[in-house]
């Protein structure tokens, strides 16, 4: 079991009505994809916002990540829309 801290930002924080939570992921060497699939399984706004083709970016421990990025215990996994600074 791998325990990661999830952070939701900007539009996703509002859509999920949450700024974050702790997620327990089963299996060896889970990836961002495993976390996403676990969240999608909740249905509703989770499956909608995290559907394939939705513009969602992820970062692990403050570095941009991909669906294949491996998660370790106590990692911070953030979900956010494409950035719009500047």
């Amino acid at each position: 079991m791998t325990s990661v801290r999830l952070v939701y930002l900007a539009r996703l924080r509002e859509a999920f009505s949450s700024s974050g939570e702790t997620l327990e992921i089963t299996g060896d060497r889970p990836t961002v994809r495993d976390a996403v699939e676990q969240l999608r399984a909740r249905g509703d706004v989770w499956s909608y916002e995290l559907a394939d083709g939705r513009a969602v970016r992820t970062a692990v421990n403050h570095d941009m990540a991909s669906m294949e990025t491996v998660l370790r215990d106590n990692d911070e996994l953030a979900f956010f829309p494409p950035v719009t600074g500047g």
Binding site: L9, A10, R11, A55, A59, M64, F80, P81, P82, V83, T84, G85, G86
Partner: peptide, 24 residues
């Protein structure tokens, strides 16, 4: 690079309501 990499998000308040700005 800042406009595509740095994690900032803009939300606009207009007379029609508030909305998150989409990336261009």
């Amino acid at each position: 690079y800042l406009e595509t990499e740095a994690p900032f998000w803009k939300k606009e308040k207009t007379p029609q309501g508030a909305r998150w700005v989409d990336a261009r």
